[in-house]
Structures are given as structure tokens and as C-alpha cells.
Design a protein around this nucleic acid. Structure first.
Lengths: 138, 138
DNA sequence: CGGGATCCAATTCGATACTG
DNA sequence: CAGTATCGAATTGGATCCCG
């Protein structure tokens, strides 16, 4: 089939979707760097993933990600709120209760981010195998 | 239109695609953390994006990302090679020439990663606005 | 319960100098 | 050209103590 040949050729040519041309951008004002820096940290993807399921309270979120320190939980929550990905709602009960949930922007981000999370899960074994080969030959 | 109502309800319910359930995983063996750590760095996404266009030689790649140090270029290239995303080919010319190109795994990753890069570019202004609001109110 | 503040350890990163 | 090696700065992250 000619279509198979065509798609094979596309792969050989590295013909991949690429909308932004990063090479023509000022590095100091690159939107990809600007936005990716915040979602590329150690905890942000996990927290966005948790909050994509349902709203969480502080302690609840801490139990959902057992090995996060309280400092990083607080800080990452504030960062995500500043970026506009999550919303913080305080209930003046006693003791106080605070709920975090994704904003619409956050849900938009997660819709794309989730594809990457799924890719990671689906291809972990391939990555592990590549690491093993690399380390063996070295 | 009822379809609009339905999709609105889905958004309100946080009904988003989620294949991996991270909360049930051992944090120390989480595929998402394992894989995302390498592609979440400061330089890896930019280099994958460059190499998705075409193969690059060392110095050429350095010029394409003007503000990367040679140390980080070397190190990130090795990391990406170890993960199985890029291939390194040495041409025994004089002076030597080394070419880097995406592997099939790397192209598979980039197909997903590019969606996130596009999201970042498309939504940078919304993120900037959110930051401004957050900083103004604080 | 939901944090703030402080101190310290680990990791990341950049600048510089040197090499086949 | 394509790296390696070393140093120090900067950033990130964890532990601990404190509070309303």
C-alpha cells in the first residue's frame, strides 16, 4: 500500500507536528520555557493529576502523595495557583478547611498533560530497556 | 443545544481523561515520575524539539540553543541517549563530527510532547494574566 | 487543620580551563 | 569539532519547630 510507504517516509524525514518555531525566539521570552518551567517540576504533575480527579483539601492531598513534604506541598500549591491552574477556597470553619480545585485553564492544561502521563506509563518499559542497554555497553 | 450542556457538565465534573491511577502506585516505582523526570528538565524539551526538526551536530545544536552551556548540552544529550530518545552517530572525519537524531521512541515521545509545547505557546498570555492578578492581589 | 519560618542537604547549573 | 574535568553559585527540596 502506498499509504504505508508514505507514512514510513514521513517518519524517516522526522516529519512531526511542530507549530512553534523555538529557534527563532528570544530565549529570554520563550513561551515554552516560560510555561513549562512550572509544570515540569517534581511535584506539579502529580498534584495536577490528583486534582484532575476531584477537589482536594490540604491534608487529603498530602496523604494522596505520601512522600511530599509539607513545605513543597504548600509551595507547589501556591505556584499552581499563581499560574492560574488551581483555585483555593477557604471555608471559615473551626478548624479551618481549605479546598483546592482545577480552574478551567488547569483543566485545559491537564487534558494535554494527561496524554504525556499516559505516554510515560505506556512506554516506561521501553525506557527502562534503553537505560539498561546504555549502561551495559558503557 | 444539548451537546453543549453535556460537555459543560463534563467540565464541571472534572471529567477528564485519566488512564493511570497514580494514587494507587508505589511512589518509588511510579512510571510517571520515572519517565517525566528526564523530560521535565530545563533543556530536554528544547533539545527534543530541535531534534524533531532534523538531525543536529553538536556545535549546530549549541547555536540553535544559544544560552545553553556546553556542559549542559553534553550532559543532556547523554541523558536523552540513555533514555533511548536520541541516537548518537560518530563520523570518523578530521576533525570529528557527531550527529544526533531522534530514535523511533523519541519521535513517539515528541508526538505527545509537541502537544504540550503547543499548549504552552497558545496559553502563555492566559498564564501571564493569572500571574499578574495573583501578584496584584497579594 | 492548614499552614509560616528557619536551617541545612542535595541537586542543578554555569563559567572556565584543558584535550584528542 | 566535540567533548572532559573541576569549581563554585544558584536553585530545589526536606526536616523541624512554630502558630491561629
Amino acid at each position: 500500500m502506498s499509504s504505508a510507504v508514505i507514512s514510513l517516509k514521513k517518519i524517516e524525514d522526522n516529519n512531526l507536528p511542530r507549530v512553534v518555531d523555538l529557534s527563532t525566539l528570544d530565549p529570554a521570552n520563550c513561551p515554552v520555557r516560560d510555561v513549562l518551567q512550572q509544570i515540569g517540576g517534581k511535584w506539579a504533575p502529580l498534584m495536577l493529576d490528583a486534582l484532575a480527579q476531584k477537589p482536594y483539601r490540604f491534608g487529603e492531598l498530602r496523604r494522596a502523595i505520601p512522600d511530599i513534604s509539607q513545605r513543597m506541598l504548600t509551595q507547589t500549591l501556591r505556584d499552581l495557583q499563581r499560574e492560574g491552574y488551581i483555585d483555593r477556597q477557604v471555608f471559615p470553619t473551626n478548624p479551618p478547611s481549605v479546598e483546592y480545585r482545577l480552574t478551567e485553564l488547569g483543566r485545559s492544561l491537564y487534558a494535554t498533560l494527561a496524554l504525556l502521563l499516559n505516554w510515560a506509563e505506556a512506554n516506561q518499559s521501553a525506557v527502562r530497556a534503553a537505560r539498561y542497554r546504555f549502561d551495559a555497553q558503557a
